Each structure stands twice: as structure tokens, then as C-alpha cells.
Amino acid sequence: MPVKIYHDEDADVNIVRSKTVAFIGYGNQGRAQALNLRDSGVTNIIIGNIDDDYAKQAREDGFNPISIEEAVSQGDILMLLIPDEDQQTVWNEKIRKNIKPNSTLVVASGYNIAFNLLDLPDDMDAVMVAPRMIGAGVRDRYVQNIPYPCFVSVEKDVSGAALATCLSIACAIGATRGNGAVGSSCREEAGIDLFAEQALWPEIMAIFREGYNVLREAGFSDEAILFDMYLSKEPAEIFERAADEGFVKQLKYHSRTSQYGQLSTMNRNDGNEIREKFRRVLNDNILSGNFAKKWSDTKWAAEELAKEWKEVEKAPIVQADQRVRDVLKPDRKK
């Protein structure tokens, strides 16, 4: 069954214009979405943020940031746009006891709702409006009237109007233009996101790491290896072509030798080993909630992340990368 895709004509932007919208966080997504809402005619926007550089940016943008607690108590709509790993703590300490009755929670990441990390009031609607784009991209594309992909979902509908509110917000930030906003769920958004982070990209990075090791053992130079692998930005060009024209169809821009090498190798790799590894990551670590449970321990998370950074810096490809970059610096001493 095809998923539902929502367009401008499915949304009533006047719904969000009639509400007080409280942004919790003015960072990557917070700033972009607040500015887009304001440009769409939403006048009652409150920024709840600690007194930091983000609050300074909000003031420069013409907002008057207040404490998170104050913002929450006034918001008909709460845009919870702080990092995933901070949401549960901030929710429990600053948000939960100050929530205005019959309000709506909006998240841009499904993580905390998917893994039941937020204790939602009984009378609160919960929806997701999740741009598949960094905040700067959300803002730039809105200003240039260019569509961008977005996932939307209704996770809790007490009022009976949660979908209308969700689509009104999506429309006001420019997410229902063009191809429209794709109906999804917090579980789907979080699951796919975590899978990319814990399965797809680690496998790709490991392949590049071991590719470097093999080529270096064969006597090839760091400069030649790294430029051919990624410093030339050719992979970025390939991914852009794949997005625009198709995962496989982009191969038509490669030489016939390249086409044959890639297709013949891929077609004869049944992928069983990788598939089983991916299934374990998805089922045992992500969908089981095991990762979310561990990551909720912020002390453990900080220590583990620091340990992983320390470990990766030992990798030969990382050290080679730095050496090559130092040589290529335009202001290097001669």
C-alpha cells in the first residue's frame, strides 16, 4: 500500500497562525523553522532557550528568548528541537510540569517518542514534522521556494485535530511544497536514521579504511589514494547523480571499464553476510530499544563517545588524512 503524501492543498496554514508556538531550542532546526514560520505569517512565536550563543542568535533575529519553563507554559504548540540525547532530561526537569493543557508536541526526530522516553500528558497531542535536511537547508530552500523532503506523522491524537495541526506546521515551514511531505511514523524515522548511523555508514567507512590499508601496503602514496577515494569529491558527485537520476542509472556517467567493474562485482555478491550483520544491528540493538536505553545514560554516552574518538584517531587513514591536509594547506611554510 503506497504511503500518503501531503501537499500544500492538504494543509491550512491558518491553524498554526492562530496558535502560540513555543520553540524549545534555537539551534540547527529551531532557527530555520522559527524563521520560516514567521515568514509564513505566524506572529505568536516564543523562543525558549538557555542563555547561550543560540539565544544571542535569536535576539539578533528579532526574537526575545525566555527560559524553557516560561516558553512551555505559554505554548499551544511545543516545537521540541533540542538534540535527541538531551530531550529526556530537559523534558523531565523543565518541560513536563509546565506544559499548557491541551497543547501539541512537535518533534523533528522520532527518536524519543519511538522509544517511549517522554512521559506525555494524557491531554497532549504528539506529531512529527521531520525535514530530511539540515536546518540551513530548510531555511535556504524556503527562501528560494525550493521543495525539500520531509516526513510527517501523528503519534497521539487526543483532540482529533492532530493531523491538521501537523500539516499546518509542515506547510508553514515549506515542507509540503513540490513533491510533498511523506506520511511516516516516529518508529520508522528513528529506525531508519539509527540504521544508517549504526549499519550503513560504518560499513562504508570501514570499507574506505581497509581500502586505504590494502593500497598503502601495495606501495601507493597517501596523496594518490585519498584523492582517488574521496578528497576529489567524486563520491559526493556520484551520490548527487544517484539522488537526481537513480541509484544504478548514475553509472552511465562512468567509463565502460568502471561500469563493468562495479556491476560485475556487485551482481556476484549475494550480500548474505552483510544482510545478516545488518539484521542484527536493526533488531538486536535498535528496534529492541537496547541502544536507546544505553544512550539515555548521558554520562555513559559522553564517555563512550570520547573513547570512540580516541580509538579512531589511531587509524592509519585518519593520520594519513591529516598529513595530506597539512601539506595541501595554501598557507604552509615553504
Rank of each mutant, 00 (worst) to 15 (best):
F195S: 09
M229H: 05
G180P: 03
A175E: 00
E210T: 08
K233Y: 05
Y148A: 09
A170Y: 06
R209N: 07
E155P: 03
A170E: 01
I192M: 12
F208K: 13
C150V: 08
G191S: 11
G219C: 06
K233D: 02
D222H: 10
N213T: 00
S232I: 00
N179S: 10
V154D: 03
S184Y: 12
I204C: 08
D222S: 08
G211F: 00
A170P: 04
L167I: 02
L226T: 11
L194R: 14
L194T: 11
R177A: 06
N213H: 08
E155F: 10
A161Q: 06
A181V: 00
N213Y: 00
A161K: 03
F227V: 01
F220T: 05
A190Q: 09
I238P: 00
E234W: 08
S185Y: 04
V154E: 04
E237L: 04
E203C: 09
C166A: 15
I173M: 12
L163A: 05
E234Y: 13
P149V: 06
E188Y: 13
E217A: 10
L200Y: 09
P147K: 04
G211E: 09
A175R: 06
F239E: 03
E203I: 02
L231S: 05
L163K: 10
G178V: 00
E189F: 15
D222T: 06
I192A: 14
R177K: 05
A218Q: 15
G191N: 11
S185H: 10
L215Q: 14
E217K: 15
S153A: 14
I204E: 03
C150R: 13
G180D: 06
F195H: 11
P202D: 12
S184R: 15
L167H: 04
S185I: 01
I238T: 02
F220M: 10
L194F: 12
F151V: 00
L215Y: 10
I238E: 02
V182R: 13
S221L: 07
V182L: 14
S168L: 00
I169D: 01
P235H: 07
L200A: 07
E223H: 11
I204G: 06
G174N: 04
E223L: 05
E223I: 01
W201Q: 15
S159E: 05
E210Q: 08
C150G: 07
S185C: 04
A224Q: 15
W201Y: 15
A224T: 14
E234M: 07
L215S: 14
A196S: 13
N179W: 07
P235W: 07
N213D: 01
